[in-house]
Amino acid sequence: MADTDEELGWVRASQTGDPAAFGRLVGRHQRMIHALAYRMTGSLAEAEDLAQETFIAAWHQLEGFRGEASFSSWIYRIAVNRCLNWRSRAQRRDSVHQAWSEQRESIPSGDAPRARQVQEALLQLDPAQRATIVLTVYDGLNHAEAARALGCAETTVSWRVFTARRKLRKLLANVQGKGGGA
């Protein structure tokens, strides 16, 4: 997640209040943040909201970015925290979703049934476990990197991965394909 000189220039300009430079940063990292948010929520609309929240929070926190980590790592951590917080808010907000009949999108995918089951299984994990799986399996972070992103110990990440895998195997036991029935 190394920053280019060009990107560092955008970061510095954004820190002086240049929205156009910040727009370029958004453009560069929007797909990564959307993907993370989608993995965490299973919803395109929620992912869009979370991505917006993440970038807006980043804008307001830019003064605190000192460059010790790369900008992409920094904003990724903001997104992870937002996603974890989203889950707790969403749980309390279920009645609102029912009352206003907010529609959760179906999961468009080539192999839709299996993909849907997998996504639903992910959503049944504890949010911290899900975040750990998303970071390590989908985004390819090692346990040390995931621990930094999640703000916890590496051993905690390892334990969460272990327990999440155990639960996923049970949840996906009936899913055709490898891994589920093992």
């Binding site: 992910l122 195997r169 394909g177 891994g179």
Partner: peptide
């Protein structure tokens, strides 16, 4: 087994 589970998990693509 972990590899197989990873493969299954990755069948969900981000739209």
């Amino acid at each position: 087994r972990d590899d197989e589970l990873n493969e299954l998990l990755r069948t969900t693509c981000v739209p």
